[in-house]
Each structure stands twice: as C-alpha cells, then as structure tokens.
C-alpha cells in the first residue's frame, strides 16, 4: 500500500466517541511534519478542532491553526447558498430561489440533499488549486466524517442520490462517487476502540465499505489501547503476591500494614482484567479486518491538550512508517 499521505482525500470514520477527531488531527500533524499543507474538514454542529489545537472553534471559514494546518467546519446552509450562487450565476436570482417555498419544502423533503451538497464542497476543496502555479491549494484534505449510525451515513449519499436523481445533482453525485472510489486519491480510515460494541460496528462498517461503497481503504486505528502496567514475565510474581498470604501480608506491611496492600492488588486485578478484554477485542478486530493497523496507546490525561495530541501523532506516525509496503 502506498503511503497514506500521498492521497489527496483522507476520510476518518467510525462509531461515535472512538476518537475520530483525534486521529484526524494527528494525521494533519503528521502531514505538517512532512511539509504538506493539510486541511481538516468537519460537518458537525460544533467542531472540536479548535479545542484540540488550543484555539476557538473554527466555524464555517477556513481557519489557520498554525504549522501548515488549516481547518473548516462546513455549514450546510452556507454551502447551499454558495452552490446556488455558482450554478445560477446571478446572486440576486439564486437568493430568490432559495427563499422560494417550493425550494424550501423540497429541501426539507429530499433525502440526503444536505449531505450531497456538503460532499460536493469537499470535492471542490480537494480540486481547488492556485490560479498562478496550478498547484493544489491543499496537499491533503482530511475529512473527519460524522459518526456512523448503523449504516455508512453520509458516504452512502452519492450512491442514493445517483439512484434517485437524474438532473444536475446526479451529475455532481457521480463525480463525488468517482472521487471517493479513486484509489490514487482517496483512502478511508477506520477508527475503533478495543471494546465489544465499537469493534462489532467497525467490522460491519468495513464490510459495507468494501462490498457496497467500494471506497479504497487505508488503515485501521485501534484507539485508546490500555497501557500495559506490568512486564510480560511479571505474571508469576503477581499471582504469588495475590494468592500467597505471607507475601500479601509483607506487601501490606510495607505500605503501612493497615489494608493498603489489598487495595493495590485489587487495582492490579482490575487493570489486568480490562487490559485482557481490550487485547481480545483488538485481536478480534484485526483478525476480521484485513487492513494494516495501528494501535494508539491510551493517553491518560485529564485534559486532552497539544502534548496529548502529539503523543497520538507519534504513535500514528510510527505505525505509518512500519506499515509502508506491508500490504497491498
């Protein structure tokens, strides 16, 4: 597989709360480290890019986050206005159509129209180039896609639209679908947590992307993998401390002799149990999804700041380096 960052459009997707935005931001950091211009795109009501980079929410205007990274949070209504302005030519006329009751009811009723227009905007961002040099404005556009419900959500829209529509919009839907399927330009990355539900849904999502959407896939990111607090051959010593009364008492005695020992051992049991569950789920998702995968260790911090983001970016970058050429 060629390096992820040679693609022009990277899509990050997965279930809600698995860390998609963090992975998207980490990919942008890595692009910037390599001297590439990266644009982060979200379509949420409230974007989290600002929070991750320590600035205000970015909103609907492309905003520089520094170090060669920019971000934008697309708003459907503004994108629709822009779309009409370009297609109608005359701004006054396009605003009249937008205000027309026919358009308004149509817009409310047409399934996926908002999503289609948003994807159209992303398509144009990928396509955008400098008038003078002809070089693309953005080396890589990283689309932090909304969380998938049961289906593939927004990524499904170009196909649905191409089925339902025939006019101008169908043409646009087909162009978007072609970009989404271009192996040289696009890669879709899956993010999951090493837990039962996210893993089950990620496996389902992968099958759908492969069989129905046919969008080329990049990597699988297993996020927030618990950090191993013990060393592999600690197992024997651990069980000795946990089962042997004399050793247990000696531990407790060293900690003051009033019951701290059992608490320490209970914490160890808990951490090991959670780690084992996480490892099982990580193994399960890797076995089911034949993509190069990266484990991102759990960053234990009360405030997810720049340092935490850099730690994630380091893990992702190490995975990218190791993964080059690993699979085709």
């Amino acid at each position: 597989m060629p390096d992820l960052l040679t693609r022009r459009l990277l899509i990050t997707t997965g279930k809600g709360g698995v860390g998609k935005t963090t992975v998207s931001a980490a990919l942008a950091r890595i692009a910037a480290r390599r001297g590439l211009r990266a644009l982060l795109v979200s379509i949420e009501r409230h974007d989290r890019f600002g929070e991750l980079f320590g600035v205000d929410p970015v909103g609907a205007t492309v905003t520089e986050l520094g170090e060669g990274i920019a971000a934008v949070n697309l708003e459907p209504d503004r994108v629709i206005e822009e779309f009409f302005d370009t297609h109608v030519g005359l701004r006054a006329v396009s605003r009249k159509i937008l205000a027309h009751p026919v358009w308004k009811s149509f817009y409310a009723a047409a399934p996926g129209l908002r999503e289609l227009v948003l994807l159209g905007k992303i398509f144009r961002l990928v396509d955008e180039s400098s008038f003078w040099s002809g070089k693309p404005t953005w080396d890589v556009v990283i689309f932090d896609a909304p969380s998938t419900g049961h289906g593939a959500g927004i990524l499904n829209v170009p196909d649905v639209s191409a089925r339902l529509l025939v006019g101008n919009l169908r043409h646009q839907a087909e162009k978007i679908a072609a970009l989404l399927r271009d192996r040289k330009k696009t890669a879709l990355n899956l993010v999951t947590l090493p837990e039962e539900m996210p893993v089950a849904e990620t496996i389902e999502l992968h099958a759908r992307v492969r069989d129905e959407l046919r969008i080329p896939m990049g990597r699988l990111f297993v996020n927030a993998v618990p950090v191993e607090p013990f060393e592999p051959d600690d197992d024997d010593a651990l069980s000795r401390l946990q089962t042997d009364d004399r050793r247990g008492l000696a531990l407790d005695a060293a900690l003051g002799g009033r019951g701290a020992g059992p608490l320490v051992l209970a914490a160890a049991r808990h951490l090991r149990a959670r780690r084992d569950l996480a490892c099982d789920q990580a193994d399960r998702v890797r076995a089911a999804i034949p993509l190069p995968s990266t484990s991102i260790p759990l960053v234990a911090t009360p405030h997810f700041d720049r340092a935490a983001l850099d730690a994630v970016a380091d893990a992702v970058e190490a995975g990218l380096r190791a993964g080059v050429g690993a699979r085709s």
Binding site: A237, L251, L263, A267
Partner: peptide, 12 residues
C-alpha cells in the same frame, strides 16, 4: 517480587 510490587504501586 519486590520489583513487581513496585510496579503494582505505580500502576495503582
């Protein structure tokens, strides 16, 4: 065992 106990305490 002492080395493991130390790791236990830091994990805790």
């Amino acid at each position: 065992d002492r080395a493991v106990a130390a790791r236990l305490v830091s994990a805790w």
